[in-house]
Design a protein around this nucleic acid. Sequence first.
DNA 1: CTCCGCGTGGTTTTT
DNA 2: CCACGCGGAG
Length: 740
Amino acid sequence: MDVSSILDSLNDAQRQAVTAEHKPLLVLAGAGSGKTRVLVHRIAWLVQVEGLNLHNIIAVTFTNKAAAEMRGRVEEMLEVPAAPLWIGTFHGLAHRLLRRHWQEADLMQSFQIMDADDQKRMVKRVLREMDLDENQWPPREVCWYINNKKEEGIRPKHIVAGEDELEAIRVRIYQAYEDACARTGLIDFAEMLLRAHELWLNNPHLLAHYQRRFQHVLVDEFQDTNTIQYAWLRLLIGKTGTPFVVGDDDQSIYRWRGAKVEHLQRLATHFPELQTVRLEQNYRSTGNILKAANAVIDNNTGRLGKELWTDGHDGDLIQIFSAYNEREEAEFVVTRIRQWQNDGNERKESAILYRSNAQSRVFEEMLIQGGIPYRVYGGLRFFERAEIKDALAYLRLCANQNDDAAFERVVNTPTRGIGARSVTMVREYAQANSCSLWHAAAACVADELNFPRRAAKALHVFLVLINEMSKAVEKLDLGEQVEHVVFSSGLIEHFKKEKGEKAEARLENLDELISAASGFDVDEVVNAMQSDDYEDPELQLDPEEVSPLVAFLAHAALEAGEGQADAWEDCVQLMTLHSAKGLEFPLVFMCGLEDGLFPHQRSINDSAGLEEERRLCYVGMTRAKEHLYISHAERRRLYGQDNYAQASRFLSEIPTQLVHHIRPQVSVSRPVMPTLRRAALVREPAPEGLSLGQAVMHKKFGPGVVMNYEGQGSHARVQVNFQDVGAKWLVLAYANLQVI
DNA sequence: CTCCGCGTGGTTTTT
DNA sequence: CCACGCGGAG
């Protein structure tokens, strides 16, 4: 076997990982150190050198994008279709298992996936049924509670509320929500993972089968696994599987959504034979960028330890720009981008990164003003758009008429005279008879006595519509099905009436939905759901096939699609630091590096939160290949208020010899704080000697900046943003502040 | 049913 | 400041 094609392009550490013996392996892969390459080459090694079958390998990622890229690169390298290789997101793989074993998983065959929006609606419905006040039980928080429990593998029956009455109610809501989901054949994202875990726990023969099959378990971005994902992996690996885990504790930025970096440390306990390989050579950034990033992340405690290096040149210094306000910051960035493109570079090679979405606004305004095309990442994605979800809801009703969520969504969309009153009655009937809304509606229509004739008629029209729709659609192929539903639902008419640019876009989206369905590769997905385990007679797979419609609906929920379109256009890239993870750009601007914004105020007070912010900073810095600009504003308008902030503490963690400070030119008109003056005049006079933006020193809290004040004389209070402890309100008379 | 006005809350995101 | 959701009026 000629191994050179697999190994030649690798460095020593990469090669060590790729060729490792069959023992648990942890690859600590720094940013830009070629981790995807290692995963892909590892698979090629197992297949081409060790003679394993792709069929015996499973690879897990967090995003569809990563999964698709990996599959593509494996196919490219092996020059064969990688269909027998199971590769996908945790959710995608869990979904595949649940479709195959829906009976063992105690699901209905046509079960559908709810996204976060569907889930919230479902929770609202449950709250209404339980007569609980939405203000007291915000659906957002209820969802959060339920998802958290599921991510920890906890069912309602496991929770002992004890004396805690509020907790007891939460558990009751959780239980009612589960009942509603079961009744309507819907599962949320967290449920997929938990269900897949329970599937194996409750069906040892299935677990044994998959353990036998998947001798090699590859995991990408392992630092992002939550409790249930790790538990699922451990089950699969069992005593015989070999985990090949790639991750980076320094790039763990999803603690807030349940990710546990600790899993990286625990790996060594759970797998005593674990070997660790560090990938520290970086192929992305210049030396100075790496030195700066290393220096920042070095302030974190409990790291597994890793230091990026490059054999390339040092490159530019890190350029730090102190702006007067957010407008000046944006002006500066736009000027530099214009320079960049005038120097013959592409706009899409530049990225503006920020901590929170609200910051994009000023940049967008400035870019529009400057006539520079840009693209903002994030926001609603294709399958999350209202009109698309409406159309999908009709399709869902065709596939499963007990889908109450879909029923509620479209029963009066477009409006057809079924008001809140009627829906409430249907809901009450459904609850009283514990049946689906669909059955309840049919019963209400039949029961002329208690239901207003007018409403009954309208409801009847809807029932007939759906009935005819599902009948008409039966023998059509997928594209025609979607087309039929989009038109006969009345959605097209509905949006045609609406007029305006927005409605125009909605119509286009519905058109695109039809094309998406027509071009949907039914075979690929349906086949994946079906058996590729022919040689295992013990594995009983349901012979019935998954309908293309059900497969398409699952695809829509699982892969919400791209955000704004036109990635190919030459645009400046705007995104949050979180969305930038995994990407790289020759020219990077990290903006708004101010204490309180980044690190965010809500993370500033606990060390775990602060360390995660620091990792986010590290992630941002290591996105830059050649030029890294970091900017902050002395003053920033946020929520309609002017705020004064100090430069982010992370800035001072960059060694000064790596930094070039850019000061705004004096000639740039710097207004003499007109708004500040007005504010000071209109408001009560500032306490003596203090003004907004004034730097002060406190005995205990250290240096800070005056952000706000109120009250007079001995009652006067000031809000000071302290460098070390964040913003605090202090009674001026006691604070003993020193002006500095 | 639709429209308007008020009130409120406002890191980070994938599946 | 602004975007969203809810409740009342037409």
